[in-house]
Write a protein that binds this DNA or RNA. Structure first.
Lengths: 396, 396
DNA sequence: CGGCCTTTGTCCTGGGTGAGGAGAAAGTCG
DNA sequence: CGACTTTCTCCTCACCCAGGACAAAGGCCG
């Protein structure tokens, strides 16, 4: 099942591959406009790429006023596998070399079942996608896990919500199973890379990507590159204290952001409100389902339930408080909010914005968009594909 | 008074210049070990540098077992001017090309007197240093100002504590006056660069440098490079909220870190304590001087004054609270604390450490040193020299 | 003190690379 | 249909640079 053995031989070829990945099919002339190489040099490098099979001819380009140029594109048969392991579900997608998602599967699953069970599931999903004719094999795979990762080795380290994964050689194991190169990263970083590649963060060099799901994390992009920190735990903002002596948190402290607002906390609050008789809407849903989730709160809120709206607003304030601090510190050009609770949508966004614009200094917030992610569920898998393609499209 | 017109012609020469700057005089052979160039290529580049006069021969090196090598070093006559404009004082220093401080002057001065008055002062101090025979002229100057800077242009933007400087063309003006290239940056960033070059942060790629003076700021170094943010206001952590509905701050909000702990806040608290009869020690000092400063608190604390110790501890808790959040977010390899209040020393450090180690996650704090800066008053001017030398020792 | 080894520095050459000109091929526009 | 534009290929020439050969300079040991 080994497929793409070819790798760019030098930085020029790597550059060209990335241009083709990000810009789609392109004529040699257009490429020449972007890379500052002499025509002869460019021709040589393109010919070499054609030889490797990574790149193929793709008909004629439209004329720019003279002779029409021959288009080239990345090999249409290249396939990347993007895997996004969340706390409660798994996403697997197949992309082409331009990182367009060709097929996508989602499956509920508790990450605490451990790496072996999850891997089995992931491989089954990948096989299913392959069986449906989307891919004959994979040229590379990216995988995101909900916890810190020692990036160079691709191994989770001390992940609080998935203790069974500590030290499990994810990269090694998946590479063995799939027979292709694999890169591993934190799921939040992948979401950031996804939004950077195909979402709202295109053309922004420095931005933050806050993912609110079961937990809360933040992807940090500096100068176009993901910042992972010295131990791979950068962006772990879920345990920043937002309420002095607040609610007890699983981490042992009190008043952590995650304890006061996250998918899990929101569900708990909603159930409390339902049982306490504060919201008929929520009580009805609890009656129906036996338990509540963030999605129930979102639904209740859009049905006008005052309690749900208040819960969201309050949560938004807490997140906003942290984001405001991070904005002052980091001075990003954009803040993206995504993750499972984006269903809470504009109510959440509004209260986050209010809090940030009120608390941070004007110079930092003056031209700072705070927006929802564009890619939704596909952000993670797109980012995963981007991760492995960045790796493969770099000099060997 | 123009001096060094020469600039490295390519990246190799730039690399060599930086090696000589950071490592002092060096033999050709030693340089060869570090740069991965063929001996012939290296010889050519070194010869060219010798021709420009940037580099000079410096006798024979010790033998490494065979023929002795000829040492080379940066021209001993090269001089950089480092200027550090604080809120209440100005530091000016002369360094050689290895960024060793040859002479240093400090002068109390209120930055709010405006750029014209401050420039006059700075130029007078530079002239004095020159007159004392330390320099015949300057090959470049770096200058730090206590507020955000639009870095490429070298112009302060919307600085809260020095409104008169907004938009003043610092770089342009100083370059005119001194007749040499000038670079401008935030004073905190310069402190970080100073500690990176010659202080505790040598060999650390990602670290934070918290400067506690009249205000509070934080230098951010990512992958060896200072992160300035999209509008140059990164690291502006003085207005992060630490106490909900806390003390009113000059910025219009409440509970800002700066309002609860900084040189200015500490002095105010001390005076209140003295007047309120809580501390005989402080009252005596207030009696004597008519007002109190952070230095008085430091002195009282080391004399054992309980109130002062408590003030410092409380302040340390507030700073520690913010640093803990930043550590979770950024996952640095080192936190340096410096600035005027380092006189508070280990009492402060201890309470910051306690707070950080207690509040942040073990993975981020596990191997995280939190230390005082090594360079004291010289950090800023050293960083300023480093800034301009980085600029000059890069390909034209 | 004298051979032998190690290290350093210089010279030279051969392979490789890449910039840019010339010109052919392919289109557009009037 | 002809003049102009754009694209692409070929070719040449200058430059660069790695590495070998060799000379110079010094240490080490008997």
């Amino acid at each position: 099942m080994r497929r793409m053995t070819a790798r760019p031989a030098n930085a020029h070829q790597a550059r060209l591959l990335r241009l083709l990945r990000d810009g789609g099919p392109n004529s040699r002339a257009q490429l020449g406009d972007q890379v500052d190489l002499s025509r002869s040099k460019l021709a040589v490098e393109v010919d070499r790429l054609l030889e490797t099979g990574l790149v193929v001819a793709d008909g004629l380009a439209a004329s720019r006023g003279g002779r029409r140029s021959h288009n080239i594109r990345l090999a249409p048969g290249l396939r990347f596998l993007g895997v996004d392991i969340g706390a409660t579900s798994v996403d697997v997608a197949v992309t082409n070399a331009e990182l367009e998602v060709l097929g996508h599967l989602n499956q509920p699953m508790d990450v605490r079942e451990g790496p072996v069970a999850v891997f089995e599931q992931v491989l089954a999903m990948a096989a299913k996608l392959r069986a449906s004719g989307l891919a004959e094999g994979f040229d590379g795979a990216g995988i995101g896990v909900p916890g810190p990762v020692r990036f160079p080795e691709g191994v989770p380290v001390a992940p609080p919500i998935m203790p069974g994964w500590d030290g499990f050689p994810v990269r090694e194991a998946l590479s063995q199973e799939l027979g292709c190169p694999v890169m591993v990263d934190n799921d939040v970083n992948l979401m950031a890379m996804g939004e950077q590649h195909a979402g709202v963060a295109r053309s922004v060099g420095d931005f933050l990507c806050v993912k609110i799901g079961t937990g809360i994390g933040c992807g940090i992009v500096v100068g176009g590159e993901v910042h992972r920190g010295v131990t791979g735990s950068a962006g772990d903002i879920g345990h920043i204290q937002v309420v002095p002596d607040g609610r007890p948190c699983a981490c042992g402290n009190r008043g952590c952001l995650e304890a006061h607002f996250s998918g899990a906390a929101l569900a708990r609050d909603a159930e409390d409100a339902a049982r306490g008789g504060h919201s008929a809407e929520l009580a009805a849903r609890l009656e129906g389902a036996g338990r509540l989730t963030a999605a129930d709160v979102a639904a209740a809120a859009s049905a006008g339930d005052a309690t749900s709206l208040e819960l969201i607003r309050e949560g938004g304030n807490h997140v906003g408080q942290v984001i405001a601090a991070l904005v002052s510190f980091f001075n990003p050009g954009l803040v993206v909010i995504g993750g499972g609770v984006t269903g809470l949508g504009h109510t959440l966004l509004a209260s986050v914005r209010t809090q940030v614009y009120r608390t941070s200094l004007p110079l930092a917030t003056g031209n700072l968009p705070i927006v929802l992610g564009e890619l939704g569920q596909l952000a993670g898998v797109t980012g995963a594909a981007r991760l492995i393609s960045d790796h493969l499209f770099s000099p060997a």
